[in-house]
């Protein structure tokens, strides 16, 4: 028996999502997000399940998922560190943040720590150039970082102190 099935509340949310669109196919991205929320990443069985739900060819669903970097084709750690290394962030020290990751976590880009806590990715511009450098942790932007702040952040996350993200997620100024 395949256990790949949305939970009851997600089945409801699935219906609500699909109803917003002209065609079920248009709901592919939000439904993949929904699936990613439940399973953490989009395995083959999840892609097949979503294809079945939306009546789409699985090759279409899988190739579409492969196109978008926020759709995870592999599991990531509990904290997905997405470090921007575009122009402004590079200018303002993203390479030093990369070095902090290496020192604190032993991580190179596209690696996950052995305890499954952290995955590091270098990503493209996050639209946070005015508050560079930035690291996105799962869905949250941590901005105006510097090596010592970032080190502190990682150290507290390592011991499970998630409140640090909230503390460091400051309002953007204009």
């Amino acid at each position: 028996m395949s256990s790949t099935e949305f939970t009851a509340d997600r089945k409801e949310r699935f219906k609500t999502i699909v109803a917003k669109y002209e065609q079920p196919s248009c709901a592919l991205l939000p439904v993949l997000y929904l699936a990613q929320e439940q399973w953490g990443y989009l395995s083959s069985s999840v892609l097949e399940y979503v294809a079945g739900l939306l009546g789409l060819p699985v090759a279409h669903v899988a190739s579409t998922a492969s196109f978008y970097v926020m759709l995870k084709k592999k599991p990531t750690g509990k904290y997905w560190l997405q470090l921007c290394n575009n122009v402004s962030c590079t200018m303002l020290g993203s390479e030093e943040l990369l070095a902090v990751c290496k020192e604190e976590l032993g991580l190179e880009p596209n690696q996950t720590t052995g305890d499954g806590l952290f995955t590091l990715s270098c990503v493209q511009c996050l639209g946070s150039c005015g508050t560079a450098p930035v690291v996105q942790i799962n869905d949250d932007y941590v901005e105006n970082l510097n090596p010592s702040l970032f080190r502190k952040l990682l150290q507290r996350l390592k011991v499970g102190d998630e409140s640090v993200i909230g503390e460091m997620t400051k309002e953007m100024h204009s």
């Binding site: 065609q23 196919s25 248009c26 709901a27 592919l28 991205l29 939000p30 993949l32 997000y33 939306l54 789409l56 279409h60 190739s63 579409t64 196109f67 978008y68 970097v69 926020m70 759709l71 990503v123 493209q124």
Partner: peptide, 22 residues
Amino acid sequence: RGAGAYICGEETGLISSLEGKK
């Protein structure tokens, strides 16, 4: 919500993406 692809800012890329495609 998009899912991480710069090209979706191009208007026809955006349309393709909204149609559930690459």
